Amino acid sequence: MAGERQGSTEPELQSLLSDESQADTRQSRQLARRQSIAEAVMGEGSMRIEDISARFGISLMTAHRDLDELAGRGLLRKARGVVSAAPTSLIESSDVYRANRQQAEKAAIAQAAMAFVEPGQALFLDDSTTVHMMAEHLPAKTPLTCITNSLTLMTTLKGLRDISLIGLGGQYYNWCNAFMGRMTTLEVSRLRADTLFLSMAAVTDDIVFHQSPEMIETKRAMFNAAARRILLVDNTKFERRALHGFAALAEFDTVIVDGNTAPIHVERMRAKGIAVVVAPMQPV
Results as ranks from 00 to 15, higher is better:
residue 14 Q to E: 07
residue 17 L to Y: 06
residue 28 S to Y: 08
residue 174 N to Q: 11
residue 238 F to T: 05
residue 204 T to M: 14
residue 93 S to Q: 14
residue 239 E to D: 14
residue 145 T to Y: 03
residue 18 S to C: 07
residue 35 Q to M: 14
residue 45 G to C: 09
residue 103 Q to L: 10
residue 183 M to W: 07
residue 252 F to C: 11
residue 218 T to Q: 11
residue 50 E to S: 15
residue 45 G to K: 11
residue 170 G to M: 12
residue 156 T to C: 12
residue 195 T to K: 02
residue 76 L to V: 08
residue 171 Q to T: 15
residue 253 D to C: 00
residue 276 V to M: 07
residue 191 L to W: 05
residue 271 A to Y: 03
residue 248 A to S: 15
residue 108 A to R: 00
residue 55 R to I: 12
residue 169 G to L: 11
residue 170 G to F: 12
residue 147 I to W: 02
residue 2 A to E: 14
residue 195 T to D: 03
residue 68 D to P: 01
residue 72 G to T: 11
residue 181 G to L: 07
residue 245 G to C: 05
residue 108 A to T: 00
residue 168 L to Q: 02
residue 81 G to T: 08
residue 58 I to K: 02
residue 116 F to N: 00
residue 94 S to L: 11
residue 74 G to I: 05
residue 205 D to P: 02
residue 72 G to N: 10
residue 67 L to M: 12
residue 262 A to F: 07
residue 62 T to H: 09
residue 227 A to F: 07
residue 80 R to V: 08
residue 89 S to N: 07
residue 208 V to K: 03
residue 272 K to M: 15
residue 202 A to M: 05
residue 142 T to V: 15
residue 77 R to H: 13
residue 155 T to C: 07
residue 202 A to V: 07
residue 159 G to P: 07
residue 137 H to C: 02
residue 209 F to L: 11
residue 138 L to W: 01
residue 80 R to L: 13
residue 126 D to M: 10
residue 103 Q to D: 06
residue 249 L to P: 12
residue 122 A to W: 02
residue 237 K to G: 09
residue 94 S to W: 01
residue 54 A to G: 03
residue 267 E to T: 14
residue 128 S to R: 04
residue 221 A to W: 10
residue 277 V to T: 14
residue 122 A to N: 03
residue 249 L to N: 11
residue 260 N to L: 05
residue 139 P to I: 14
residue 100 N to K: 12
residue 271 A to P: 01
residue 201 A to C: 01
residue 46 S to V: 01
